[in-house]
């Protein structure tokens, strides 16, 4: 398989976005604060990266109420899962081809 850096999805060039995808790939749902804890970023920073991934339709939001307080949870979409897996495959292939 011939691979090049161009096969890597632009959305994953950023570390934080890659981090969001990684944790959502192994968790069914995560709320904003849990994401923040894992990634160690500021609110504004995380929100903007989440928005980017949302626009790509890689992640989606579920809004619900806990004790009448709104609670927003994020989850990975089928499209996002596929894109993330492809990204991993390309990364691995690039590393292998460079050895």
């Amino acid at each position: 398989m011939k691979v090049s850096v161009n096969d890597l999805h632009k959305a994953f060039e950023n570390r934080i976005r890659l981090g969001i995808m990684s944790v959502l790939a192994v968790n069914d749902f995560l709320d904003f604060n849990s994401l923040k804890d894992y990634l160690d970023v500021t609110d504004g920073n995380l929100a903007s990266h989440i928005k980017t991934l949302e626009k790509e339709k890689f992640i989606d939001i579920e809004k619900r109420f806990i004790d009448k307080k709104p609670n927003t949870r994020y989850f990975i979409t089928e499209k996002g899962k596929k894109a993330f897996e492809d990204h991993l495959k390309v990364l691995e292939a690039i590393i292998k081809s460079q050895k």
Partner: peptide, 10 residues
């Protein structure tokens, strides 16, 4: 980093 993220969060 992906690997450690996945493990740490699951």
């Amino acid at each position: 980093e992906i690997r450690s993220m996945m493990e740490r969060s699951s």
